[in-house]
Amino acid sequence: MKFAVTVTLKKDVLDPQGKVVQDTLANLGMKSLKNIRQGKFFEIEIEEKNQLKAEELINDMCKKLLVNLIIEDYKISKL
């Protein structure tokens, strides 16, 4: 089973990288651009047939290592 995990900085955490990317795109003339937040993406494959169990395991991975819960949020979705 394959899952995608997206990790993003929490709303109130400053994201200087995202800001620089946003400013650069604005300089390129992207006038309707409102906001950019930069994050991380993990593609995870595990040997488990039960989706609930699989999601539990991925959740555990996120909490134990992939995500710093003080500053980051995450979303798990099945691929």
Binding site: L14, P16, N68, I70, I71
Partner: peptide, 9 residues
Amino acid sequence: GTLLRNRNL
């Protein structure tokens, strides 16, 4: 707490 990227990158 945690240590973020320097604000001037």
